[in-house]
Design a protein around this nucleic acid. Structure first.
Length: 437
RNA sequence: CGGGGCGUAGCGCAGCCAGGUAGCGCAUCUGCUUUGGGAGCAGAGGGUCGCCGGUUCAAAUCCGGCCGCCCCGACCA
């Protein structure tokens, strides 16, 4: 992408409404713009990040045997009357009427919708287990939206729903999601810690929240150091196998958010206890037959009886993650994207646009990187060097490739790693092979 | 929903208390000079002062109402 033709409205100054670092950086980096309280537009750079996050989530869900669907944002109130939640949900639910005065709502979640789909289609235990997920915008009319996209009213969420014939099957489904979540967050360069959680309005008796560690996180977390040492990506996971030992390994250690943490009864010695701050980015629930029973979602069992299916639901805050990743990875100069979610892999800086040698060398590098399938943002604008450096640091592209007149005289370009600031002078070919390899 | 704050040019702000026809920095445009970490000089353009009403010869400024946004708290992916 040539920056001279891109839409990247970066800001030198921080808008007054933004307080926390991810919100400030997302506005400054031209990723988002606020529409109204807790509702945002995603600009090209932000949308790229959102799509990268979405892709990792989708790949891990598919690998765990889930099937993607897409349910509507607008749901009929009658569906929620079946489960009893239409009256329970309260003012957080955005209620609307269509032209026929029918009660509708903008979905805050989709348990009822998926249960309706499933009950109409599946009648036999032979068709279980199944797990269906979608990635869709939700709306919860928060009393007090804040922290930019981290706590918006409108947000993009991946929610998956599992269907099993009994508790044992549901626990296996739960375990698959548990492991898939660990892998998903690890792939985004995040340290995620699963914690026992309350089930809240969704109900049920087995639940974990996944909290990622970030210095500026909203709540304090305490955990055993072993939880940070595990490398879930190193292990080869077979989702058809028994995942109980893996889950066991992650749940036997102490982990608590500050509302649950009690220094007096904490089993981890104070000098070993990891104290950090965290942001909740995922939540998984097993809630048995809470919806299947009232909504009549049942299958015929092997003995010919009819039994309501056991369900679970599994959420990941996709748009929240965009902010959370920035909270976990930034410095005074701007964002530091992990490679896996970066909007571009390489930021190519032509320090002196208009200089024939620089234009030729940079243009050539740009073409070769594109041809090799590398996503490059090429700053070909007629701007000063300092402003190009500052801008590239701000938007946080992992690699900066700098082409300037000084280096070209020696036959070199510079390759800088955004995360560490490490910078090496390399020949053009060496730089290319480093980035393409 | 309780408490607090703010709304003046694209962004950041001053002006309001002591009413007199709107200003600064950045950004934008033009020209010249500069050119390896957000350049300098000169010039130019851009504002229903959130909205409605009231007071007054005169309102960004005073009064009343409304709307929006932010922060703290209680609540949440």
């Amino acid at each position: 992408m040539r920056l001279s033709t891109y839409f990247l409205p970066t800001l030198k100054q921080t808008p007054a409404e933004a307080q926390i670092v991810s919100h400030r950086l997302m506005l400054r980096a031209g990723m988002i713009r606020q529409s109204s309280a807790g509702i945002y537009s995603w600009l090209p750079l932000g949308l790229r990040v959102l799509k990268r996050i979405e892709r990792i989530v989708r790949e891990e869900m598919d690998a765990a045997g889930c099937h993607e669907v897409l349910m509507p944002t607008i749901q009929p109130a009658d569906l929620w009357r079946e489960s009893g939640r239409y009256d329970d949900y309260g003012p957080e639910m955005l209620r609307i009427k269509d032209r026929h005065e029918r009660d509708m709502l903008y979905g805050p979640t989709n348990e009822e919708q998926i249960t309706e789909i499933f009950r109409g289609a599946v009648k036999s235990y032979r068709d279980l287990p199944r797990n269906l997920y979608h990635i869709q915008w939700k709306f919860r009319d928060e009393v007090r939206p804040r922290f930019g996209v981290m706590r918006g009213r409108e947000f993009l969420m991946k929610d998956a729903y599992s269907f099993d014939v009994d508790y044992a099957g549901a626990k296996r489904s739960y375990n698959r999601m548990f492991v898939a979540y660990l892998r998903t967050f690890a792939r985004m360069g995040l340290k995620a810690v699963p914690m026992r959680a309350d089930t809240g309005p969704i109900g049920g008796d087995l639940s974990h929240e996944f909290v990622i560690l970030a210095d500026t996180g909203e709540s304090a977390v305490y955990c055993h150091p072993a939880l940070l040492a595990h490398d879930v990506l190193a292990a080869d996971i077979d989702y058809r196998g028994d995942l109980e030992p893996v889950v066991e390994e992650w749940t036997r250690h102490y982990a608590a958010t500050d509302d649950k943490h009690d220094p007096g009864s904490c089993p981890v010695p104070a000098d070993e206890l990891v104290t950090a701050r965290g942001i909740e980015v995922g939540h998984i629930f097993y809630f048995a037959t809470k919806y299947s029973e009232p909504m009549g979602c049942a299958v015929t069992t092997a003995d010919g009886d009819s039994a309501p299916v056991h369900q679970g639901s599994y959420g990941i805050g996709i748009s929240r993650l965009a902010g959370a990743i920035i909270e976990a990875s930034h410095d005074e100069d701007g964002i530091i994207w992990p490679d896996s979610v970066a909007p571009f892999a390489v930021g190519l800086i032509n320090l002196k646009s208009g200089d024939p040698a620089c234009d030729t060398a940079a243009g050539d590098l740009y073409a070769k990187l594109l041809a090799a399938g590398v996503e490059v943002l090429y700053d070909d604008r007629d701007e000063r060097a300092g402003s190009k450096f500052a801008n590239m640091d701000l938007i946080g592209v992992p690699w900066q490739l700098v082409v300037g007149p000084r280096g070209l005289k020696q036959g070199v370009v510079e390759l800088k790693r955004r995360a560490t600031g490490e910078c090496h002078e390399l020949s053009v070919d060496a730089a290319l092979s480093r980035l393409v390899g």
